[in-house]
Every structure is written in structure tokens, then in C-alpha cells.
Design a protein around this nucleic acid. Structure first.
Lengths: 201, 201
DNA sequence: TGTTTTTTAATGCGACTGCATCGTAACGGT
DNA sequence: ACCGTTACGATGCAGTCGCATTAAAAAACA
């Protein structure tokens, strides 16, 4: 009965257009027309896949969470690549670097996320989705620290349940300053490494 | 030359109206008309004091920086109150608590700041102002840590130049999660205290 | 009191917004 | 080959936006 297009793939294409608009011209520039132009389709197409603008943005937010997680998994998988077993410290450092806006995609993701954070202060739906996404990463971070503690990679007296959130929120706190040019990515990574030196043997 | 009203005071009144609009209905709701209604004046008045919307927002951003600094100074001055000399740890902890959205004013300030952060990703003027404001607080934080080190309040082996930015950015990283309800203010303060226990004797 | 200048208010305008309403093209099932 | 459903594009509409224009009100100085 349907035609031949992949519905979900079309929605993802439009979500990517939303990201491009936010990343280049900001959250305020996200109009149905501009998203359509960015995606190379007509406005009717956008309306066809998203009955309302907020639904488009909610889908885009979920898509962004998946995108970050995918980039995270890919980075961690690359460390496991050529037959070598990475240490927990290497994994945690790589995951931290992924969340910092150091390269092009990372910066776009950070811009989109901070825009949704701002919108979430007055739109509970965004806040709920952000909570889900960030709490998951936080949980994984804590689990990774506990594993490091179990493997004896942490220094004596380091509490993984206390230091894992601290490192995670420190990373989050570095995103904004990097975005506005207050802190350079190299300095941020140096700060992270200093903390890792303190936590790991 | 007749003049009856205090120009600067009027502009501050309008800036407060901007904060109220952002805090209650979000950055997108900041229109000249809504700001005028919030301030209890007409739209022509807003236009008279700010020839363009962006100038109003730039002034509001500078005003917000002053407001945070004022609240910070007031909090620190209160610690110096009844003839007692507060420790550097007490001062740093108080300053940290001021920057977290724990009470009403703190939450409004955090909402406004995150909104400007988002806007700063595409508007360099905002980015520059934010850099100035945050770098100043960062400088003060580092100076306070150095003073703590000079007074011997820090534990052995603690580098103030490395740990001061870490604590500062950790605090910044806690703001967003508290705003969206991912983290409770009490938990955030507990996390800060755990770090302070590590840094101070 | 009359004049000048600032302050405040009211209104209009072009542009843009999200959304609804069409019309049409294209494929799948029968 | 026909028809129904889906995909998609074009256009209209009520509302809002920032900003310009205009005028009235009010206070300081002549």
C-alpha cells in the first residue's frame, strides 16, 4: 500500500538538517522553511513527516542522543581494534574526548545539545529526554569506574562512585567554555589528563 | 536640558524584565512587546532606551554578569560578618554554592546564562561578553586557591593552578544537570564537598 | 507662560512564523 | 488497467515579529 521511501530514514535526514541549521545559524533559525531548504525538500515534505514543529525537534533530540552514543561506541570499538586490550583509563579518556567539542561533528553536537538545554528550562518534554540521555551516559561512566576499581587500576583511596560523576560533570562543564572560546580543547584535555593521573595508577 | 528619569536605572529595570521573561517563558519569548508588558511599560519605551533588540540583550547580559558578581560579593561579605575570619575553604565553598542554581534567583540566573550560551554559539558578541565574565570569575577562583596554598590550607601535593579550574568547571558542569532535574542541589553540593575534602586539610 | 527637549504611548508596515488546505505525481495491490 | 494510498509540492492564512513613524504628555528653562 505505501510508496517506496523509508519513513524512518527520511525523518533522520530531516533531523540532520535541523542539526545543520542549529549548528550554523542557531536555534532561532530553525523554521519549517529553513529546515526544508537545508534538507533539499519542500516544506510540505517536512510537514508530512512531522505534524508539528515540536515533534520534529523532539525526534531530532532523540536522534542526537543516538548519534552521540553511536560516535561513542565507534570510538571505543576502535580502541579494541588491532588485538590489543585497552585499559579502563584509555577507554574513559577516549569517551571524555568524544563528549568535548574538539572536532567538527563534536562541536555541532555540542551546539545542538546546549540549545536543547536552554529550551529544556521551559519545555519539560526536552528536559525529560535530556535526563534520560545524560543519566544513561552517567551510569555507564560510573560502571566503567567501578570496573576500573575492580581491576585495580585506580589508586588507593579513590572512590569510583564519587569520582566518576565528578569527572563526568567536569567534562560537561568544559563544553560551554570551549564553545565560546574561553578554553582551548588542548587545555581542556590537559585538565582531564591531570585528573586521570590523580585517579589512576 | 530637562531630564527626570535615571536613564541607567530604566535600562536596568528593562534588563530585569528580560530576565523574568527568559526565566519564566524562555529565550524565544523575549520579544519587545513581552518585555514591555513584563516591565509594565509600553513598547515605545523599550525602543526608546534600546534602539535595537540585540543591544537590549547585550546590555542585559552585562547586567547579568554584574548581578552574579554582586550576589557573590554579598555572600562572601556575609561570611566576614560577625568578627570572624572565614577560611579559604569556606569562601570557596560559598562562592561555588552561589553559582549553582539552588534557590530562586540562582535558578533564574542559570536559565538566563544558558540561554545566552546557546545564542553565543552563533553570535560572537555574546561569546565575547561571556568570555569576559567567566574568565574573570575563573581568575578570582585561581587566585583564591593560590592564597589557600600560601596559607597552608591545601593538602600536600595539591596544585592550585590545576585544581582551581577543575573545581570551577566541575561547578559549571553541575548547573545544567540541576536545571533539568537530573541532579539534585543537595547531591551536587555533596559532590563539591567531597572534592573540597580532597583538596583541603 | 511659552518653548524646547525628553519620555511615553500608539499605530502601521513589511517580513516571517507555524499550520491548514489543497492539487498532483507515483507506486502497490487487485 | 484501474484505484487507493502515500509522498510531496504550492499556496493561503491568521498571528507575531522587529522596527519606523507619529503624536501626546511632561518637565526644565526662557
Amino acid at each position: 500500500m505505501p510508496k517506496q521511501v523509508d519513513h524512518e530514514q527520511r525523518r533522520q535526514l530531516l533531523a540532520e538538517a535541523v542539526f545543520a541549521v542549529i549548528g550554523t545559524r542557531g536555534w532561532e533559525a530553525v523554521s519549517l522553511r529553513d529546515v526544508a531548504v537545508q534538507a533539499g525538500v519542500s516544506m510540505g515534505t517536512v510537514q508530512h513527516y512531522f505534524p508539528a514543529k515540536q515533534q520534529m525537534l523532539l525526534f531530532a533530540l532523540a536522534q542526537m542522543r543516538d548519534r552521540v552514543n553511536a560516535r561513542l561506541q565507534a570510538t571505543l570499538a576502535a580502541l579494541h581494534g588491532p588485538g590489543n586490550q585497552p585499559s579502563r583509563r584509555e577507554l574513559i579518556r577516549a569517551a571524555t574526548a568524544v563528549m568535548l567539542p574538539v572536532d567538527g561533528p563534536g562541536r555541532e553536537e555540542a551546539c545542538v545539545n546546549i540549545a536543547f538545554f536552554s529550551a529544556a528550562t521551559v519545555t519539560p518534554e526536552y528536559a525529560r529526554q535530556l535526563r534520560d540521555g545524560y543519566s544513561r551516559i552517567l551510569t555507564v561512566t560510573v560502571a566503567s569506574f567501578r570496573e576500573a576499581a575492580r581491576l585495580g587500576e585506580l589508586r588507593d583511596g579513590i572512590d569510583p562512585d564519587a569520582e566518576a560523576p565528578a569527572l563526568y560533570f567536569l567534562t560537561q562543564g568544559l563544553v560551554g567554555p570551549i564553545l565560546i572560546g574561553l578554553y582551548q580543547p588542548d587545555d581542556a584535555l590537559a585538565l582531564i589528563d591531570a585528573q586521570l593521573n590523580r585517579l589512576f595508577r
